[in-house]
Design a protein around this nucleic acid. Structure first.
Length: 479
RNA sequence: GGCCCCUUCGACUAAUGGUUAGGUCACUACCCUUUCACGGUAGCAGCACGGGUUCGAGUCCCGUAGGGGUCACCA
């Protein structure tokens, strides 16, 4: 039975890289009819962020990533929050010490800092100098009994090759001389990531550890820990990193990295998921749009790439537009409604649906529905009018034609697309001009813009009284 | 700097050792068209470099260069 886990630390928002890690875990679990587990890694009390867990839960739900075991749904291996399992870690640290695989270290942060600086100055790799590694049991016990602050460190074997098989990269080997005597238990009694992670992965019977490549270099420590406990390590799969445009690790400084940012900017969850799924993995290379079911059916860790992938916003925009086009206007309504509300646009559902239908194939994100087409909600004020378009189409002759056409509009009984088109075409034919000579000035007068939906459908949505009055008004105010 | 990982169009990627190196985004042109989009057609553009193995290398091996990650009582 495949059992995988997504193990975020609650830092306040969900990084898109974390989203992809969570997604791959989810896809892998579902593909193999396995179990997807959520575990909160909150062992750093100094980084505690109020509400971060709740936010993460909400974001995962928005993204459609479900968990079979976790803090919300519980499960046979709980609790699924590390800060509630500290006793377990302490017991295991003791066990390690008892078997000689770990030792207490009394070095102060100040001393460690000094040692590190000296090493850097000397040009040698900064590592713990192992001062406390060979303290006698008596001295150790005495100092602990005296209440001296200490940490517990892993006793890394000397001169051993540590190797493991990575499902994505193949065999990876480290010389244990390059591995630090890692702190396992901090002086506050909380475990570090390394200890808690291994203890929990084993306790929760995790079969595959799927995580970001930034963990690759600490994996030998984990392998050593499994060995020290006498446990069989899980299979590892280290995912390539998500990158900025300059190919550095995707970071906050260079744009949006939080899933919440994309949600708030009007990206659909299915689009984000589809996009992020294809960053580092591709099942066919000819198809780009995949439903979550497609992804589950096709997902295969063996096909995950080794190299990092640049997060390309333009392709995400395109994909989001694809997803928006695939929805029905009615499905989009509840997503657009709050945006209209935010801008104090008061319109009926029917009206909003009509606007959505007009704009659907012209937007990339949800807010575009209301921001690209504010004229559906409020009259244009021409403050940001396209001067080129205006000078080309808002000529004295054009205004004359509009004045002449207006009575036909005012007397029009059925104000719908076809009737409007008939009237405009009839007029232009009768006067020997192309329909564009009428269409553009009307568009400008009614919308204040030189682009947008077809004029007749747009007028039909805005309605007769408003359209006619806007034309009248433009005729007097717009010079 | 040590260690580890990586390297196909600008970006995401495909290619049993035998292809004119394919697709998608972006970009360009054209078509459609009342504008903008959508849609359609075409185009631009890539195997980091050097050796080796092989009849044949993007693909296997070695090296070089470049990029990245990591070196905390953070995860």
């Amino acid at each position: 039975m495949v059992r995988v886990r997504f193990a975020p630390s609650p830092t306040g928002y969900v990084h898109v890289g974390s989203l992809r890690t969570a997604l791959y875990n989810y896809l892998f679990a579902r593909h193999h009819s396995g179990v997807n587990i959520l575990r909160i890694e909150d062992t750093d009390r100094t980084r505690y962020v109020e509400g971060a867990v709740e936010n993460m839960l909400r974001t995962m739900e928005w993204a459609g990533i479900a968990f079979d075991e976790g803090p919300v749904q519980g499960g046979p291996f709980g609790p699924y929050v590390q800060s509630e399992r500290t006793e377990l870690y302490r017991d295991h640290a003791d066990q390690l010490i008892a078997h000689g695989h770990a030792y207490a270290c009394f070095c102060t942060p100040e001393r460690l800092d000094q040692v590190r600086k000296a090493q850097q100055a000397a040009g040698i790799p900064p590592m713990y100098d192992r001062l406390c590694r060979n303290l006698s049991k008596e001295e150790t016990d005495r100092r602990i009994a005296a209440g001296e602050p200490h940490v517990v460190r892993l006793r890394v074997p000397i001169g051993e090759a540590v190797r493991f098989e990575d499902m994505i990269r193949g065999e990876v080997e480290f010389d244990s001389r390059t591995i630090d005597d890692q702190v396992l238990l901090k002086s506050d009694g909380f475990p570090t990531y390394h200890l808690a992670n291994i203890v929990d992965d084993h306790a929760m019977q995790i079969t595959h550890v799927i995580r970001g490549e930034e963990w690759l270099s600490s994996t030998p420590k984990h392998v050593l820990l499994y060995g020290a406990f006498g446990w069989e390590p899980p299979k590892f799969a280290h995912l390539p990193l998500l990158l900025n445009a300059d190919r550095s690790k995707l970071s906050k400084r260079q744009g949006d990295v939080a899933v919440e940012d994309y949600r708030d900017k009007g990206y659909l969850p299915d689009a984000l998921i589809n996009f992020v799924a294809l960053l580092g993995w591709n099942p066919s290379a000819t198809e780009e749009i995949f439903t979550i079911h497609d992804l589950i059916r096709d997902f295969d860790l063996e096909r995950v790439n080794k190299a990092g992938a640049v997060f390309n916003r333009e392709k995400l925009d395109w994909m989001n537009a694809e997803y928006i086009r695939k929805q029905s206007p009615e499905e989009l309504l509840p997503l657009v409604r709050p945006l209209a509300q935010d801008r104090n646009y008061v319109v009926s559902d029917d009206y909003l649906v009509a606007v959505i239908r007009c704009m659907q194939e012209r937007v990339r994100t949800l807010p575009d529905f209301v921001d690209f087409a504010s004229y559906f909600f409020i009259p244009p004020d021409f403050s940001d009018v396209d001067e080129k378009y205006k000078s080309k189409h808002w000529t004295p002759e054009a205004k004359e034609r509009l004045r002449a056409l207006l009575p036909d509009f005012e007397s029009l009984e059925r104000w719908d697309h076809d009737s409007l088109e008939r009237v405009v075409r009839a007029y232009s034919e009768a006067n020997g001009l192309s329909a564009g000579k009428l269409i553009h000035p009307i568009r400008l007068a009614v919308t204040g813009r030189g682009m947008g939906p077809g004029l007749f459908e747009l007028l039909a949505v805005i309605g007769k009284p408003e359209s006619v009055s806007r034309i009248h008004r433009a005729l007097v105010t717009l010079s």
